[in-house]
Design a protein around this nucleic acid. Sequence first.
DNA 1: TCACGCGGGAGAGATA
DNA 2: ATATCTCTCCCGCGTG
Length: 215
Amino acid sequence: MDTQSDLDVILEFLEEYHRHNTVSGEEASYWGAGVQEEAKSAEDTTWTQFCWPCQPHSIQASAHPPTCEPSAAPFSQITATGPTHGPQPDFVSSRQLAKHQAAEAGSGRKVRLFHFLFEMLENPAMAHCVSWVPAAEGVFRFSARNKDQLAALWGQRKGNKRPMTYQKMSRALRNYARSGEIFKVKKKLTYQFSEKTLKLLHRRHHGDVTCKPHV
DNA sequence: TCACGCGGGAGAGATA
DNA sequence: ATATCTCTCCCGCGTG
């Protein structure tokens, strides 16, 4: 990092990303969309956060379908809150980029709650705790009976000293509304990944490429 | 009335 | 040392 200027890093990064986009037209437009501050901040967040410092080692990586099927459905009814434009490379700060790259290099930050939740959702063994809402898009629901079990797992994953509860976990979940990663659905125990979040989680989790967004 | 889920605010801990 | 991010904790409110 010290050996390269921020600009160099950004350029290199963009170049690499462009190569990826040549196989994914959708993603290309995703990046090339209009310029808005709101989108900028949201995407910055995205870059810093879609890392997998903690692979689902403790979770049997089970029968992941080869495609995006676990979401059980396409994604189109997302609330208007989430920006639909792509990231703005021009705005990717060196700090954010560094974080992203560090994460890519495997030295990143601790696992984040929505990563953890996605892992759980992708794990059929955890369906009794949390599951996708069929026929909905990126929507998932906690089991009223086992939600605290999942929260406890989250607490374990974080290495918390005090026990995690659903109440505290859901509070953290609702904080994601500010960054546009997850939205609260007006239904008990139900939340929804934003479109971008879901796509990127799928890309990360399934190694992408075959994963086409159903829009 | 009670239990439960939700939302706000403040603060802690980790990271850059 | 400082700023920022991401929770964690506590409290109060609304609803069934």
